[in-house]
Protein backbone atom coordinates (compact mmCIF):
# COMPACT_ATOMS: atom_id res chain seq x y z
CA UNK A 1 0.00 0.00 0.00
CA UNK A 2 2.78 2.35 0.99
CA UNK A 3 4.74 1.52 -2.09
CA UNK A 4 1.70 2.21 -4.26
CA UNK A 5 1.12 5.53 -2.52
CA UNK A 6 4.75 6.48 -2.95
CA UNK A 7 4.73 5.62 -6.62
CA UNK A 8 1.58 7.60 -7.22
CA UNK A 9 2.96 10.59 -5.35
CA UNK A 10 6.28 10.45 -7.12
CA UNK A 11 4.56 10.01 -10.44
CA UNK A 12 2.10 12.80 -9.80
CA UNK A 13 4.84 15.10 -8.63
CA UNK A 14 6.51 14.82 -11.99
CA UNK A 15 3.63 16.60 -13.67
CA UNK A 16 2.19 18.54 -10.80
CA UNK A 17 4.43 20.96 -8.98
CA UNK A 18 2.26 22.08 -6.12
CA UNK A 19 2.53 22.63 -2.39
CA UNK A 20 0.43 19.50 -1.94
CA UNK A 21 2.79 17.39 -4.02
CA UNK A 22 5.77 18.86 -2.18
CA UNK A 23 4.15 18.08 1.15
CA UNK A 24 3.51 14.53 -0.01
CA UNK A 25 7.19 14.12 -0.85
CA UNK A 26 8.18 15.52 2.53
CA UNK A 27 5.93 12.94 4.21
CA UNK A 28 7.49 10.12 2.23
CA UNK A 29 10.95 11.27 3.29
CA UNK A 30 9.85 11.23 6.92
CA UNK A 31 8.18 7.83 6.80
CA UNK A 32 10.47 5.43 8.67
CA UNK A 33 8.41 2.44 7.53
CA UNK A 34 9.56 2.96 3.93
CA UNK A 35 12.75 1.74 2.31
CA UNK A 36 15.71 4.11 2.30
CA UNK A 37 15.89 4.47 -1.48
CA UNK A 38 12.22 5.48 -1.61
CA UNK A 39 12.77 8.16 0.99
CA UNK A 40 15.85 9.45 -0.76
CA UNK A 41 14.04 9.43 -4.11
CA UNK A 42 11.31 11.60 -2.59
CA UNK A 43 13.84 14.17 -1.43
CA UNK A 44 15.58 14.14 -4.79
CA UNK A 45 12.29 14.75 -6.51
CA UNK A 46 11.54 17.57 -4.11
CA UNK A 47 14.83 19.21 -5.01
CA UNK A 48 14.00 19.03 -8.68
CA UNK A 49 10.60 20.58 -8.12
CA UNK A 50 11.42 23.36 -5.76
CA UNK A 51 14.94 24.01 -4.59
CA UNK A 52 13.88 26.50 -1.94
CA UNK A 53 11.37 24.14 -0.30
CA UNK A 54 14.00 21.43 -0.53
CA UNK A 55 16.47 23.52 1.49
CA UNK A 56 13.78 24.48 3.99
CA UNK A 57 12.76 20.85 4.38
CA UNK A 58 16.32 19.67 4.92
CA UNK A 59 16.86 22.47 7.43
CA UNK A 60 13.85 21.21 9.36
CA UNK A 61 15.09 17.64 9.28
CA UNK A 62 18.41 18.61 10.89
CA UNK A 63 16.71 18.47 14.25
CA UNK A 64 14.69 15.34 13.55
CA UNK A 65 14.79 12.59 16.14
CA UNK A 66 15.37 10.25 13.18
CA UNK A 67 19.15 10.60 13.32
CA UNK A 68 19.71 9.05 9.93
CA UNK A 69 17.33 11.49 8.31
CA UNK A 70 19.03 14.35 10.14
CA UNK A 71 22.48 13.18 9.04
CA UNK A 72 21.34 12.64 5.46
CA UNK A 73 19.91 16.16 5.45
CA UNK A 74 23.17 17.61 6.71
CA UNK A 75 25.09 15.78 3.99
CA UNK A 76 22.64 16.95 1.35
CA UNK A 77 22.96 20.57 2.44
CA UNK A 78 26.74 20.35 2.38
CA UNK A 79 26.49 18.78 -1.08
CA UNK A 80 24.70 21.85 -2.34
CA UNK A 81 27.54 24.19 -1.47
CA UNK A 82 30.69 22.05 -1.34
CA UNK A 83 31.81 23.44 -4.70
CA UNK A 84 31.29 27.06 -3.70
CA UNK A 85 35.03 27.52 -4.08
CA UNK A 86 37.27 29.60 -1.92
CA UNK A 87 36.02 32.92 -3.14
CA UNK A 88 33.44 35.14 -1.62
CA UNK A 89 30.49 34.94 -3.98
CA UNK A 90 29.82 38.65 -3.56
CA UNK A 91 33.25 39.40 -5.00
CA UNK A 92 32.74 37.32 -8.10
CA UNK A 93 34.93 38.96 -10.72
CA UNK A 94 33.42 38.77 -14.14
CA UNK A 95 33.24 41.44 -16.77
CA UNK A 96 30.22 43.66 -16.61
CA UNK A 97 28.79 41.96 -19.67
CA UNK A 98 29.21 38.48 -18.28
CA UNK A 99 26.10 36.79 -16.95
CA UNK A 100 25.77 36.57 -13.20
CA UNK A 101 24.24 33.59 -11.58
CA UNK A 102 21.97 33.76 -8.62
CA UNK A 103 24.20 32.50 -5.87
CA UNK A 104 22.16 33.93 -3.01
CA UNK A 105 20.98 30.46 -2.14
CA UNK A 106 24.57 29.52 -1.25
CA UNK A 107 24.40 32.08 1.51
CA UNK A 108 21.00 30.70 2.57
CA UNK A 109 22.40 27.18 2.86
CA UNK A 110 25.46 28.43 4.70
CA UNK A 111 23.20 30.20 7.19
CA UNK A 112 21.35 26.96 7.89
CA UNK A 113 24.63 25.13 8.35
CA UNK A 114 26.07 27.81 10.63
CA UNK A 115 22.99 27.61 12.81
CA UNK A 116 23.54 23.88 13.20
CA UNK A 117 27.27 23.67 13.70
CA UNK A 118 26.67 22.73 17.33
CA UNK A 119 23.56 20.65 16.58
CA UNK A 120 22.67 18.37 19.46
CA UNK A 121 23.26 15.29 17.28
CA UNK A 122 26.98 14.48 16.98
CA UNK A 123 26.33 12.79 13.64
CA UNK A 124 24.88 16.02 12.28
CA UNK A 125 27.56 18.36 13.56
CA UNK A 126 30.29 15.95 12.46
CA UNK A 127 29.12 16.60 8.90
CA UNK A 128 28.63 20.33 9.21
CA UNK A 129 31.49 21.47 11.43
CA UNK A 130 34.45 20.13 9.39
CA UNK A 131 32.94 21.58 6.23
CA UNK A 132 32.35 25.07 7.60
CA UNK A 133 35.55 25.22 9.59
CA UNK A 134 37.48 23.83 6.62
CA UNK A 135 36.08 26.72 4.61
CA UNK A 136 37.62 29.10 7.15
CA UNK A 137 34.35 30.07 8.80
CA UNK A 138 35.54 31.79 11.98
CA UNK A 139 32.04 32.02 13.39
CA UNK A 140 31.68 28.24 13.26
CA UNK A 141 35.11 27.80 14.78
CA UNK A 142 34.24 30.10 17.66
CA UNK A 143 30.93 28.28 18.21
CA UNK A 144 32.70 24.95 18.49
CA UNK A 145 35.28 26.41 20.89
CA UNK A 146 32.52 27.86 23.03
CA UNK A 147 30.54 24.62 23.06
CA UNK A 148 33.69 22.78 24.05
CA UNK A 149 34.42 25.17 26.90
CA UNK A 150 30.89 24.75 28.20
CA UNK A 151 31.15 20.98 27.99
CA UNK A 152 28.46 20.55 25.31
CA UNK A 153 31.03 19.01 22.99
CA UNK A 154 33.84 16.74 24.09
CA UNK A 155 37.43 17.82 23.59
CA UNK A 156 38.32 14.91 21.37
CA UNK A 157 35.42 15.62 19.03
CA UNK A 158 36.24 19.33 18.95
CA UNK A 159 39.83 18.56 18.15
CA UNK A 160 38.79 16.82 14.96
CA UNK A 161 36.98 20.00 13.91
CA UNK A 162 39.93 22.23 14.78
CA UNK A 163 42.13 20.07 12.55
CA UNK A 164 39.86 21.07 9.65
CA UNK A 165 40.63 24.76 10.00
CA UNK A 166 43.12 26.50 7.74
CA UNK A 167 46.41 26.39 9.63
CA UNK A 168 46.50 30.04 10.61
CA UNK A 169 43.00 29.90 12.09
CA UNK A 170 43.37 26.52 13.76
CA UNK A 171 46.84 27.10 15.18
CA UNK A 172 45.89 28.77 18.51
CA UNK A 173 43.37 26.04 19.25
CA UNK A 174 45.74 23.21 18.37
CA UNK A 175 48.63 24.72 20.33
CA UNK A 176 46.42 24.91 23.38
CA UNK A 177 45.97 21.15 23.12
CA UNK A 178 49.68 20.59 22.49
CA UNK A 179 50.46 22.41 25.72
CA UNK A 180 47.35 21.27 27.60
CA UNK A 181 46.95 18.84 30.43
CA UNK A 182 45.48 15.96 28.46
CA UNK A 183 48.59 13.98 27.59
CA UNK A 184 46.92 11.72 25.03
CA UNK A 185 45.37 14.57 23.06
CA UNK A 186 48.57 16.58 23.32
CA UNK A 187 50.52 13.79 21.65
CA UNK A 188 47.88 13.45 18.94
CA UNK A 189 48.03 17.16 18.17
CA UNK A 190 51.82 17.25 18.23
CA UNK A 191 51.90 14.44 15.67
CA UNK A 192 49.68 16.54 13.40
CA UNK A 193 51.55 19.80 13.96
CA UNK A 194 54.84 18.10 13.11
CA UNK A 195 53.67 17.71 9.51
CA UNK A 196 52.73 21.38 9.33
CA UNK A 197 55.53 23.56 7.98
CA UNK A 198 54.02 26.54 9.77
CA UNK A 199 54.25 24.83 13.16
CA UNK A 200 57.60 23.07 13.03
CA UNK A 201 59.64 25.90 14.52
CA UNK A 202 57.11 26.19 17.33
CA UNK A 203 57.31 22.45 18.01
CA UNK A 204 61.10 22.47 18.03
CA UNK A 205 61.49 25.49 20.24
CA UNK A 206 58.47 25.21 22.49
CA UNK A 207 57.88 21.48 22.84
CA UNK A 208 60.87 19.38 21.82
CA UNK A 209 63.44 21.27 23.84
CA UNK A 210 61.14 22.22 26.68
CA UNK A 211 61.90 20.07 29.72
CA UNK A 212 58.62 21.07 31.32
CA UNK A 213 56.79 18.66 29.05
CA UNK A 214 56.80 14.90 29.43
CA UNK A 215 59.29 12.75 27.57
CA UNK A 216 56.50 11.12 25.60
CA UNK A 217 55.20 14.46 24.39
CA UNK A 218 58.68 15.58 23.39
CA UNK A 219 59.46 12.22 21.80
CA UNK A 220 56.33 12.54 19.67
CA UNK A 221 57.55 15.94 18.55
CA UNK A 222 60.93 14.46 17.78
CA UNK A 223 59.56 11.59 15.69
CA UNK A 224 57.22 13.89 13.78
CA UNK A 225 59.88 16.49 13.08
CA UNK A 226 62.35 13.83 11.99
CA UNK A 227 59.82 12.58 9.49
CA UNK A 228 58.43 15.84 8.16
CA UNK A 229 60.75 18.78 8.93
CA UNK A 230 63.05 19.45 6.00
CA UNK A 231 65.41 21.34 8.34
CA UNK A 232 65.61 18.58 10.90
CA UNK A 233 69.06 17.36 9.90
CA UNK A 234 70.38 20.92 10.24
CA UNK A 235 69.50 21.39 13.88
CA UNK A 236 69.64 17.82 15.11
CA UNK A 237 73.43 17.77 14.68
CA UNK A 238 73.90 20.41 17.31
CA UNK A 239 75.39 18.36 20.16
CA UNK A 240 72.78 19.32 22.76
CA UNK A 241 69.91 18.60 20.40
CA UNK A 242 71.53 15.41 19.20
CA UNK A 243 71.97 14.18 22.70
CA UNK A 244 68.37 14.99 23.47
CA UNK A 245 67.20 13.35 20.26
CA UNK A 246 69.08 10.16 20.98
CA UNK A 247 67.73 10.10 24.48
CA UNK A 248 64.13 10.71 23.42
CA UNK A 249 64.29 8.16 20.62
CA UNK A 250 64.67 5.54 23.35
CA UNK A 251 61.45 6.52 25.11
CA UNK A 252 59.16 3.48 25.26
CA UNK A 253 56.12 3.78 23.06
CA UNK A 254 57.76 6.28 20.73
CA UNK A 255 56.62 6.03 17.15
CA UNK A 256 59.01 3.40 15.81
CA UNK A 257 59.26 4.86 12.35
CA UNK A 258 59.88 8.31 13.74
CA UNK A 259 62.55 6.88 16.01
CA UNK A 260 64.19 5.13 13.09
CA UNK A 261 64.19 8.39 11.20
CA UNK A 262 66.09 10.04 14.03
CA UNK A 263 68.60 7.25 14.19
CA UNK A 264 69.15 7.21 10.44
CA UNK A 265 69.72 10.92 10.35
CA UNK A 266 72.12 10.74 13.28
CA UNK A 267 74.10 7.98 11.61
CA UNK A 268 74.25 9.96 8.43
CA UNK A 269 75.41 13.10 10.18
CA UNK A 270 78.08 11.26 12.17
CA UNK A 271 79.40 9.71 8.97
CA UNK A 272 79.63 13.09 7.28
CA UNK A 273 81.07 15.10 10.14
CA UNK A 274 84.54 14.29 11.60
CA UNK A 275 83.88 16.59 14.55
CA UNK A 276 80.71 14.75 15.45
CA UNK A 277 82.44 11.48 14.85
CA UNK A 278 85.07 12.51 17.34
CA UNK A 279 82.42 13.60 19.81
CA UNK A 280 80.47 10.39 19.57
CA UNK A 281 83.37 8.01 19.25
CA UNK A 282 84.07 8.88 22.87
CA UNK A 283 80.50 8.06 23.85
CA UNK A 284 79.83 4.89 21.93
CA UNK A 285 78.79 2.93 24.95
CA UNK A 286 76.13 5.44 25.72
CA UNK A 287 74.82 5.80 22.18
CA UNK A 288 74.97 2.15 21.25
CA UNK A 289 71.77 0.96 22.94
CA UNK A 290 69.75 3.56 21.04
CA UNK A 291 70.16 1.59 17.89
CA UNK A 292 67.97 -1.24 18.93
CA UNK A 293 66.38 -2.37 15.70
CA UNK A 294 68.29 -4.81 13.57
CA UNK A 295 68.91 -2.67 10.54
CA UNK A 296 70.26 0.28 12.49
CA UNK A 297 72.19 -1.97 14.84
CA UNK A 298 74.17 -3.31 11.91
CA UNK A 299 74.73 0.18 10.59
CA UNK A 300 75.84 1.33 14.01
CA UNK A 301 78.25 -1.57 14.45
CA UNK A 302 79.84 -0.75 11.11
CA UNK A 303 80.04 2.88 12.06
CA UNK A 304 81.60 2.02 15.38
CA UNK A 305 84.31 0.05 13.67
CA UNK A 306 85.09 2.86 11.28
CA UNK A 307 85.21 5.37 14.11
CA UNK A 308 87.48 3.18 16.15
CA UNK A 309 89.86 2.94 13.23
CA UNK A 310 89.67 6.65 12.66
CA UNK A 311 90.21 7.82 16.20
Amino acid sequence: MHRLTTSILLGASLVLSSPAAAQGLVEIAQDTTLDGPERIAALTELRRQDADIYVETLAGFLNSSDVELAEYSAESLVNLVVMMGSHDMSEHKHDEDAPRHDMAYVQDVLEVLRANVTNTQPRVRSVIAPFLIGAGNEEALASIAEATSSGEIGEEEALNYFYSAPSDLGSPYLRSYAEGENEELAEQVIAVLASDTGEQTYLRDQILTNAEFTENRRATALGGLARYDANFSNYVVQPEVLELALSLSRVPGTDLNGSSFVQNIVLQEIRQSPELGDFYSRRLDEIGPVFSDTENAVAFRNLTRSLEQKF
Binding site: E75, N79, V82, M83, M84, G85, A135
Partner: peptide, 10 residues
Amino acid sequence: SRILGWLGRG
Protein backbone atom coordinates in the same frame (compact mmCIF):
# COMPACT_ATOMS: atom_id res chain seq x y z
CA SER B 1 31.77 16.30 0.58
CA ARG B 2 31.95 12.91 2.24
CA ILE B 3 35.73 12.82 2.11
CA LEU B 4 36.31 16.55 2.70
CA GLY B 5 39.84 17.60 3.62
CA TRP B 6 41.45 18.99 0.51
CA LEU B 7 38.79 17.31 -1.62
CA GLY B 8 36.16 19.51 0.01
CA ARG B 9 37.67 22.76 -1.20
CA GLY B 10 38.12 24.66 -4.45
